Simulated assay, not measured.
Amino acid sequence: MKNFILAVFFLFSISAIAQELTLVTAEIPPYSMVENGVQTGVTVDVVKEMARRVGQSDEFQFLPWARAQNKASQNNAYGITPLSRTPHREDKYTWVAPIPEINNDYVLVSLDKNLNINKLEDIIGLSVGVQRGTPAQRLLEKAGFDDIQTVTYEEQNVEKLRKGRIKLWAIPRLVGKYVYKNNGYNPDELIFGYVLSRPIIYFAASKDISDLEIKRWKQALNSMRDDGTFEKIISKY
């Protein structure tokens, strides 16, 4: 009886100190999006299941990406995905759980078959479109591109690329294909070239998250991998 009471007390103690994270993301298909009023996307689906397993709300706040990152880095008890781990971001977040199975290559894309976009030295002077606040923007700046044109939404880059207002588009490979198709075009038209980076996607959180919470979220993801739920989710994309 004594052991039972101690076990119950322990469980209630954990529940009492558990942190409810405010989950934030942005429209970054196919990682995170809203379709017919339903929050979905490969990383959103993964984190929603993680949230259910740790016993908290699985609802996300969808915000412009720069604002979502700012909130998660400056406020308490925030969770964010899909966030690539980069040197610029390293000290701003707690890197809770990597999701390396999801392809996140940042590549340069073109529609011009006459361009050789595999060598950086051949394309460094070309105009390139990028979503504001993404790692791709800093990768372009670090690489030495001068004509970097930023937009709020990737759909804007699709139209700029097709109209010749930019020669290149810096985009994660899966995102590029999805957004291009979603705008009504054939993604087979896209020519993928120079790889800017191959970062790993994470579920990250604000700096104040406790070690207990980190452990609980990690265990949730590991259990999803063990029981096949994780593979079932990513296979849809």
Rank of each mutant, 00 (worst) to 15 (best):
Q149W: 01
S15I: 04
K160T: 02
Y202V: 10
V8F: 07
K177G: 11
L161F: 01
Y202P: 03
R89Q: 06
D146C: 00
R89H: 03
I191S: 11
F145P: 03
F192N: 05
L115V: 12
T94G: 06
A72I: 05
Y106F: 14
V47C: 07
K236H: 14
N118I: 02
E231A: 13
S223D: 04
W169E: 02
L111C: 14
Q156D: 07
Q149K: 01
S15Y: 02
K142Q: 07
I233N: 09
T81I: 13
F203A: 05
T86V: 15
N114S: 12
V130E: 02
K142R: 15
D105V: 06
I233W: 09
I14F: 04
Q39A: 09
K92M: 13
E155R: 15
G164R: 09
Q69D: 11
Q131S: 08
T94A: 10
Q19L: 04
Q19P: 04
F12T: 10
Y194H: 07
K113I: 10
L83Y: 08
I28R: 04
K119L: 15
P199E: 07
D105G: 08
N157L: 07
I123M: 01
I17F: 14
Q156V: 08
N182C: 10
F145R: 00
L126V: 00
N157I: 00
V128A: 03
Y185A: 10
K232R: 10
K92V: 04
I99S: 05
K181D: 11
I14P: 04
A204W: 01
T94S: 12
P29H: 12
A68R: 03
A170C: 06
Y153S: 05
I17C: 10
Y178K: 15
L83N: 07
D226G: 12
Q56H: 09
Q56G: 12
K207E: 11
V195Y: 05
V42K: 08
D147S: 05
T150F: 09
E155L: 00
A68G: 09
K163M: 11
R165H: 05
M224Y: 04
F10Q: 06
R225N: 01
V24W: 04
L83R: 02
Y194F: 11
V130T: 03
M50W: 06
I171L: 02
N182L: 01
K163C: 08
L115R: 14
G144Q: 05
R132P: 13
A220I: 00
Y202R: 01
L196W: 03
N157Q: 06
N76I: 08
T150E: 11
G176I: 10
Y153E: 15
K160P: 02
K167V: 04
G228E: 06
I117T: 04
E141C: 00
S57Y: 08
M224N: 01
K207A: 05
F203N: 07
I171Y: 07
I234R: 12
K215Q: 10
T81N: 13
L139H: 05
I214V: 13
I214S: 10
P98G: 06
S127M: 01
